[in-house]
Simulated scan of single mutants.
Amino acid sequence: MGIVLVAGAIVSEIAATLSLRASHGLTRLGPSILVVVGYAAAFVMLAQALKTLHVGPVYAVWSGLGTVGALAGGVLLFDENVRLATVAGALLIVAGVAVMYVGGGLEH
């Protein structure tokens, strides 16, 4: 169940971050509401997941995959540019998250 909560927290965080971009500095009501709701949901799910999972690997997975997801969302939704170095950095993030996940163990 903890992994499902982490996955939900990642999706919520990505949605909130992309809504933050769409809010134009929190001046658009709809996206601004999604920012608050998305981040609140992400933190609630993350807090619940940490009842049974280790904080280090979970935070690495949440922040790393959230970063890569926000990057992908920015490209797909806002036509943001991606350079080769950006792709390399995203791949390094995913590799680092995988190493922490495997090496750190998740359940306590």
Rank of each mutant, 00 (worst) to 15 (best):
V68W: 01
G38L: 05
A60F: 05
P31D: 05
T67K: 07
M45T: 10
G105C: 08
Y59D: 02
A72D: 13
A72S: 13
P57W: 06
L77Q: 08
G8M: 09
G38N: 13
T67A: 13
V4C: 11
L26A: 12
H24N: 13
L92W: 06
V97H: 05
G38Q: 07
Y101L: 15
Y39C: 03
A60H: 03
A95G: 10
A85E: 09
L92V: 07
A9M: 10
H54Y: 14
G104L: 03
V68S: 02
A85Q: 05
V82K: 03
G30A: 12
V94L: 14
S32K: 12
L46Y: 05
G2K: 12
L77K: 04
L29H: 09
T67E: 02
L34E: 08
G89W: 03
L46W: 04
L50T: 10
V35A: 04
I14W: 00
V37N: 10
V35H: 06
L76C: 10
G103P: 01
I10K: 00
F78Y: 12
L46E: 12
A15W: 00
V75D: 13
G104N: 07
V11C: 09
G69F: 07
E107H: 14
L20G: 04
H108V: 11
V37Y: 05
R21K: 15
A90G: 14
N81H: 09
A85V: 13
R21Y: 07
A15H: 00
N81F: 03
I93L: 04
L46S: 11
T27F: 06
I10S: 02
I14V: 15
L5K: 06
A16W: 09
N81S: 12
I3T: 11
G89F: 02
S32G: 08
G104H: 09
V35I: 13
L84N: 09
H54Q: 14
E13H: 13
V35T: 15
G105W: 08
A70Q: 06
M100S: 11
I33Y: 02
A98F: 13
L92I: 06
V36L: 15
A42M: 14
G56L: 06
G96E: 03
L106N: 06
G25P: 10
V44C: 09
L77N: 05
L34Q: 03
A47N: 12
L71P: 01
M100K: 01
L84S: 07
D79A: 14
A90W: 00
G103T: 07
V97L: 07
K51R: 15
G64R: 06
Y59T: 07
G8C: 10
A90R: 09
L34F: 15
V75H: 14
A88W: 01
